[in-house]
Amino acid sequence: MPQFGSDIFLLIANWIRGLFGANTYAADVVMDIVKFIMIYVVLVLAVMVFVMLERKVCAWMQLRVGPNRLGPRGWGQIIGDMIKLMGKEDFRPDNVDKWPWALAPMFFLGITIMVFAVLPFGRGMVPVDLDLGIFYILAISALSVLPVVTAGWASNNKYSLLGGMRSVAQMISYEIPLVFSLLGVVMITQTFKTSAIVEAQQHVWFVLLQPIGFVVYVIAAMAEINRAPFDLIEAESEFGCGYFTEYSGLRFGLFYLAEYANLFLISAVAATVFLGGWQGPFLPGWLWFAIKVLFMVFLIMWFRWTFPRFRVDQLMHFGWKVLLPLSLANIVLTGVGIYVYQLIFPGIGG
C-alpha cells in the first residue's frame, strides 16, 4: 500500500517508467540517468548545507555568532562563496604534471559519487541494489587514496607531496579497522546487501548490538576522510594546505565539494548500517534517513571542533595498536554472541 508522503519518490519513478510503456530498455536507461542526476543534485545541495552548518557549528562551539549577514540568519553565505570561487583565476603553476594534476579533483569527486549508488535513501529507494553493497562501498571508497596522492605528486610542490604521502599512510592504516567494524553487522545479518541490512533493523538498531563496531567505525571513517582530529594531511601549521596547496578557483572548489561529499558519505553509511537507515515511526522513510545523516554530520563536526589534532606517531599507534585489536575483539565477541544466541533460540538466525 503506497502512501503519498513516504513513497512519493517511488510514485514519481513509476510515473516516469509508465511514460515508456512496454519499452523497458529505454525506461531503464532513462531511470539510470534520472537517478544519477538526483544523486548529484542531492549531493550538491547537501554539501551546501553542510558547509554552512560547519561554519555555524564551529561558531556555536566557540561562543561566536557565525555568518549572519547574507540571507536569512547568514545561511546564504555559501552562495557568495560559490560565485566568488567561480570567478577566481584558474592558476596552473609551472612544471606541474599537467594531466594527473587536472584529473585528480575530478576523480576524487567521481569516486565519491559512485559510492552513493548503493545507499538506501528510503524504502525501495536504492539506486542500484547490489548483492555486495557493503563490499562495493568499501572497495570504491578505498580508491579515493589514489587521486589524493596523484594531486600531491603532480603538483610539483614539496608540501603537496608530503600531504599526499601522509594520506597514503593514514588511509591505508585506518582502512583495516573500518572494514572490520562493518564485518560485525554483516555477520549478524548474513548479507552484504544494504537494503537487507536496513530491513534487519526493524526492531533493534545495530548500534545497540554493535556498540564497539559503531565507535570504531566512526573513528576510522573520520580518519579515512581526513577530518580533524585526523586532518594531518591538511595540517596548516605544518605544510600549507596539504595535497591541494597548488589548486585555486574551481579546482579547489571540487576538492572542497568532494571532502564534504565524503562527510555525507560516511554519515550515510553509518546511518544505514548502525542507525536503522530509513526505518522509523510516523515520518516518511527518506526524512528519517535525512535526520539520521544530519545527526551523524553534527556528531562528526562536534568532534572536529572539540579535539586537537593528533601527532603523526600518535595517529599510527592509535590505528594499529588500539583500533585494530578492538575491531578484531569485536568480531570474536560477535561470533560468540551469535553462537550463544543460536543455542538459546535454536533455528533462529543464520
Partner: peptide, 22 residues
C-alpha cells in the same frame, strides 16, 4: 575570536595557502 567575531561578515575563512586566498 568570540568577542569581535569576523565570521559574522563571512570573512573568517583564513586560507593557509595563497592560491586559495583573495
Amino acid at each position: 575570536g568570540p568577542r569581535f567575531d569576523i565570521s559574522r561578515f563571512g570573512y573568517e575563512v583564513f586560507r593557509p595557502t595563497p592560491r586559495q586566498a583573495d
